[in-house]
Amino acid sequence: MMWPELVPLVPAYMDIANSRWLWLSTVPVVLVVLLQATIFLRRAWNDGKEMGLSEQKLKTGFKTGIISAIGPSIAVLAGMLALIATVGGPVAWMRLTVIGSVAFELPAAELGVSQFGYSLGDEGITETAYATAVWAMTLGGTGWLLVSAFGTRHMETVRTKISNGNETLIPIISAAAMLGAFAYFLSGEITAGTPETGSVAVGGLAMLGLLHLADSRDVQWLREWALGAAMLVGLLAGVALRVTVGSWW
């Protein structure tokens, strides 16, 4: 009896993409990120004490930050699954540890392999094409890291100059900058399709409702959980719309 030849379901380049040596090469990068996060948290805690903040307020801020990170982390985890399927586990782990933007990493990888006439997931992708994709992802994200490294320390000076020395304007400017950043990220999603629009709308309404409830009942823990909960509700709403109605535009 002749057995049919088995056709591999995984592209050949994925053997390199998930190799032991590539896993080992990504470990130092991830460790550096973890070290930076540890140093930053330690400095923030110590500086908060020097500014006169009580330990209770510091713990509340720390807990609020952890809770607020849950929503974005779920989105990054979902995107990481797609990235693992195309560029392998090690590179996906490294890239999303450093940058965390699937919206950038996937197009950058696609741009790299397209120079050799391939598309992500093609079985015939060569090692050179895969290496080019990884270089495109890495070098393409370098600009953000350089701006953060050399420009962050000057942001406070810029903010003070914008407020023209008026201390009452500084919180307003900071809030406006934060709202502008959120609006910038959402502007492209609102018109991307029905699930995206619904996700933004439901998440925004959930945030308003939770904050109103927290203010009317004076529930502190609800304020802390509001952002993370609203993001999770919006994410679930987008998934539900995608599964049920799809996209109408």
Rank of each mutant, 00 (worst) to 15 (best):
Q56N: 12
Q56H: 11
Q56W: 09
Q56A: 15
K57S: 10
K57D: 11
K57A: 10
K59Q: 14
K59S: 12
K59L: 14
T60Q: 11
T60A: 14
T60P: 02
G61D: 02
G61K: 01
F62W: 13
F62P: 03
K63L: 15
K63H: 10
K63G: 07
T64S: 04
T64L: 02
G65T: 08
G65F: 09
I66G: 06
I66R: 04
I67S: 05
I67F: 11
I67K: 08
S68A: 15
S68W: 08
A69Y: 05
A69W: 04
A69D: 06
I70R: 04
I70E: 06
I70N: 06
I70D: 07
G71F: 00
G71C: 02
G71V: 00
G71E: 02
G71N: 02
G71A: 14
P72Y: 03
P72L: 04
P72T: 00
P72C: 03
P72I: 01
P72E: 01
S73Q: 09
S73G: 09
I74R: 03
I74G: 03
I74Q: 03
I74H: 07
A75R: 10
A75F: 15
L77G: 04
L77V: 11
L77K: 05
L77A: 15
L77P: 05
L77T: 13
A78L: 15
A78R: 12
A78F: 14
A78Y: 14
A78N: 10
G79H: 00
G79R: 00
M80H: 09
L81G: 05
A82L: 15
A82Y: 09
A82V: 11
L83H: 01
L83M: 12
I84K: 03
I84T: 07
A85G: 15
A85M: 11
A85R: 10
T86C: 07
T86M: 11
T86N: 11
T86W: 05
T86Q: 14
V87K: 03
V87E: 05
V87L: 13
G88M: 04
G88T: 06
G88E: 00
G88R: 00
G88L: 01
G88Y: 00
